[in-house]
Write a protein that binds this DNA or RNA. Structure first.
Lengths: 173, 173
DNA sequence: TCGAGAAACTTTAGGATTGAAACATCTGGG
DNA sequence: CCCAGATGTTTCAATCCTAAAGTTTCTCGA
């Protein structure tokens, strides 16, 4: 860790904000340490992937996500569909699609049956672009997580799935 | 999941942007599914905690983190120290400290030995404020993660620690 | 048929965060 | 002693997000 400060002390990408995790003392309940590790791992991993995506493809996670959803639906998705699927507000989607359109990766089409709706579709260029990125992205994930034994991976997946179910209980509380 | 769209299809807080995870297909390598779960769990958890922190204390995770670090170093930390510890860019730290200063929770002092440096210290009010928040924060984490069995928790911690070590290998790559 | 409310999208205002560039200040080798 | 490069901090532009309006279009029931 540490990571040398570049020219003017602008810290390197390193990792994403670890959130409070880093903050909470190193001693403490098992639960606290677990939480710290959890956010530490996902943050660092996210940062690595995001950095590579930006470096190799000059794009962001958010845009990659949009393309990924569209790739699964060749007939296109409305803005609201995208918003729901990406768990991002509708306002954000407007901006993302605008950007992608500028790059010629998607097109907006108007639904003849409902003029309120906009249907966003991948262009051929968008599709090819996405497939290239997805391939690399998957390679990265596999190469990083693949260092864990299959057993460790399975155990993790299982326990995280358990946790995931519990989390839904607390969302509204 | 799903979560009804409010008035104008503006999605509710729900969860944080899941990042690319949601995007990448549901079938695929074990590694991919694991990554999806990982970011899903930490994102949801982070969202829950962040929401509660904001509701009860009108503060953000980022600010809470700064306070937490400062609490551990009564003699104060420089901006760069904070940046390194929080894994956040230096630019962001400036803003965070500005905000905290406005609230009277921290003070900036100038290092007589090195006039480039700024030393940030917790005020008494800042310390008390932080301790109140930390108590609640810990309760939340314990109550959420405590629903997992001790065995599951230990397994998770162990595997995540393994992963965390591997991740450092990839940061610079 | 008409009009009120719902729904889809955009716009706007406000935060956060990053990365780069601009400044200010040190430090060490000549 | 002096200056080139290193270091500490701030500023700025760009990206991304949310929440709250605002606009247009549907839909459905009286």
């Amino acid at each position: 860790m540490s990571g040398s400060i570049t020219r003017q002390a602008t810290s390197r990408p390193r990792s994403r904000a670890n959130g409070h995790a880093m903050a909470v003392e190193e001693k403490g309940h098992l639960e606290l340490r677990l939480w710290l590790r959890l956010i530490g791992c996902s943050g660092k991993m996210e940062s690595i992937l995001s950095q590579r995506l930006r470096k190799e493809f000059k794009t962001s996670m958010a845009r990659f996500d949009v393309l990924a959803q569209l790739e699964r639906f060749p007939d296109g998705l409305t803005m609201s569909d995208l918003s729901r699927r990406l768990i991002v507000s509708n306002g954000a989607i407007t901006g993302l699609v605008d950007k992608l359109m500028q790059g010629g990766l998607v097109v907006r089409a108007y639904d003849p049956a409902d003029r309120r709706s906009v249907i966003v579709r991948l262009t051929r260029k968008g599709r090819e672009s996405f497939l290239r990125m997805a391939r690399r992205h998957e390679e990265w994930v596999v190469s990083i997580l693949g260092e864990l034994s299959i057993e460790a991976q399975s155990e993790l997946l299982q326990n995280l799935t358990l946790l995931h179910r519990n989390l839904d209980t607390h969302v509204k509380s």
